[in-house]
Design a protein around this nucleic acid. Structure first.
Lengths: 352, 352
DNA sequence: TTGAAAGCGCTAACAT
DNA sequence: ATGTTAGCGCTTTCAA
């Protein structure tokens, strides 16, 4: 390989070029700044002749508008702030995809912030994002610091809290009731005759939605006089191997268990694979269920029972609310959209 | 539940409040705007007395600075644009995590754009992001439209292209050589005595890195007089079930195959599970290998051979380059960081 | 240590 | 259909 083939393009650039301004385009095209601005934004009447002239020079020069100046002058920012706990948990990328798919057909653009499940970090990220004056905010969960709630309420911006509907939203909310999800799963499990039930999930304080599912779950069991026999918790990200280890531990401790309820599909699938390796009869000897409905489960040897939480749909609906508020000043605030999660029985819940 | 418990906070807000300005804080505290600004940015000398007074009133009023105005005035934007093809492919969230982890300890903030693997969409997203005048750009791959490359070069902003080092970067690059990764995997496979080799992956034009791995792969095979016997391609996202189907199809067509090389772990794992279900002897009858090193593989019944691509590390290194350029004007441009991917032999490559 | 004036690059509002 | 003027809310620069 000869050297000259590898010379980076930047070599050609002498001084870090001052970015071009409207004025540059205006001068180069002989059209006023204002008209150039109109052309570039497709606003107001401009003759085809000048329009083309401007467009040509702008492209030729490689002009990139300065949205910062534009936003300051127009008091409009086409950004939607999206604040989520994590990117490693597949759930959130799915929500983001729903949001993007809706916003893609609009002038709005999403901007993502990640909190790592820390309320204080959420507060910081929120402050940071609000200081860019976005057109809307979508954030996960209903639990926030006092300061965060105050900022949201004071912002005067449409806010949509997503994922969870069990609580009081600041403005609009789109999600499912995790309490109800837990209750319904409990009822199914009892219906199929399981009675020695174990729960495996994240350490609760970190994860309000898992906690609510657990609360709904135990509540529905209690109604039938059943109690959760044993529980197993973990920290950090979910993985198949974590599911294996936890399952091994809980059954070691409580071999009488005939059902395991996992707080997400990843650890549930790990547990399932582990039990299969051990030759445990599923769902005869031990039944299994999890939560999320990720398509990871589709290719496993048997299908784990789970609950489809409609994350993509949640993203879409949230974005639609922001969009509506943006296009129409009078669109209603304080919307409430509760989706109905669907139990997928699979092969691990219903005794043959 | 009584009604008054559910009244949204927004009910209390009469007029969408005009956001507070520095002037408001200035008037409320009796300190000049300029000094308030200094306090809020921790710049210049301010007496402790005034500092506290300002901080107190700012907090009391709930002042949120307007970064738009700040950015315009100071010509500084603490945003790093990150442009990636997809969020559904676990690979990219991992890169983002690496980037965030580095930037978290700095004033910089990443902003993510998604291209859906479409060069024209990349161009649009890039234009959009450049118009916010970010402090740096990180984007996946070395293949971009002419216009995109022109914009990048003209932007005068530090640019880091990531994931792939096979090609000519605009400025800096951090990644691995996918050609080399393909070659090395081919050599391993031959070393273990496989000769009837099949390839399964995405449709090439969509995925330059998979294509380069394939090129390196076939090149290394050719050196030993071996050719790929059959290939199977797919569209859309990866999933275990897709891996199963593809594997079924290719073996149906070419039952003589004794090795399958997958372009990613997800479809590789699907194929592996499928073959296990069929009672195929792995790696005796058929050997398997994939690419990525996702921890999904850790909990499967046997460990699929793969190549760890160091995505988290790639994210970190890219962010560090941007950071360095930002803190020190004289930091070198045109950096080149090629990481060495590691083959993980697992249980599916080495014949016993 | 503090303040006053000017202006960042654009767009709203009002001419023409 | 096009141009002119006056800011948007901050920070830079200079003065006190």
């Amino acid at each position: 390989m000869s050297d000259d083939k590898v010379v980076p393009l930047t070599k050609d650039i002498k001084t870090p070029p001052r970015p071009l301004t409207l004025r540059d385009v205006s001068e180069a095209s002989g059209v006023s700044e204002m008209t150039v601005s109109r052309v570039l934004r497709n606003r107001g009447d401009v003759s085809d002749a000048t329009r083309e002239k401007v467009l040509k020079t702008a492209k030729q020069l490689g002009y990139v508008p300065n949205k910062i100046a534009g936003a300051l002058a127009s008091n409009r920012v086409n950004l939607v702030a999206v604040i989520i706990p994590s990117l490693s948990n597949m759930v959130f990328p799915e929500v983001l995809t729903g949001i993007s798919d809706v916003l893609d057909a609009s002038p709005l653009q999403s901007v993502v912030g990640v909190t790592n499940y820390k309320p204080e970090k959420e507060e910081t990220v929120l402050f940071e994002m609000l200081s860019w004056r976005p057109s809307g905010i979508i954030l996960a969960g209903l639990e926030h610091t006092e300061a965060s709630r105050a900022m949201l309420a004071a912002s005067g911006i449409p806010v949509v809290e997503i994922m969870d509907t069990d609580g009081n939203p600041v403005d609009s909310v789109v999600g499912i009731s995790h309490r109800r999800a837990g209750r319904e799963m409990a009822r199914q499990i009892l219906r199929y005759g399981y009675e020695q039930i174990g729960f495996l999930g994240t350490k609760m304080p970190m994860d309000h939605r898992a906690r609510k599912r657990f609360e709904g779950f135990t509540e529905a069991l209690a109604k039938k006089g059943v109690e959760v026999v044993d529980q197993e918790f973990y920290d950090g990200g979910s993985s198949l191997s974590k599911g294996r280890e936890m399952t091994d531990r809980i059954l070691e401790r409580s071999p009488e268990l005939d059902f395991l309820y996992y707080s997400n599909d990843m650890i549930g699938a790990g547990g399932m694979l582990h039990l299969m390796d051990q030759g445990v009869d599923i769902p005869g000897q031990v039944g299994l269920a999890a939560f999320n409905g990720t398509d990871l489960l589709d290719g496993l040897p048997i299908k784990l029972a789970t609950m489809e939480a409609g994350r993509y749909e949640i993203g879409r609906r949230a974005a639609e609310i922001i969009l509506a508020r943006n296009e129409d000043e009078t669109a209603p605030a304080g919307q409430r959209v509760e989706l109905t999660p669907q139990i997928e029985i699979g092969d691990t819940l219903k005794r043959p």
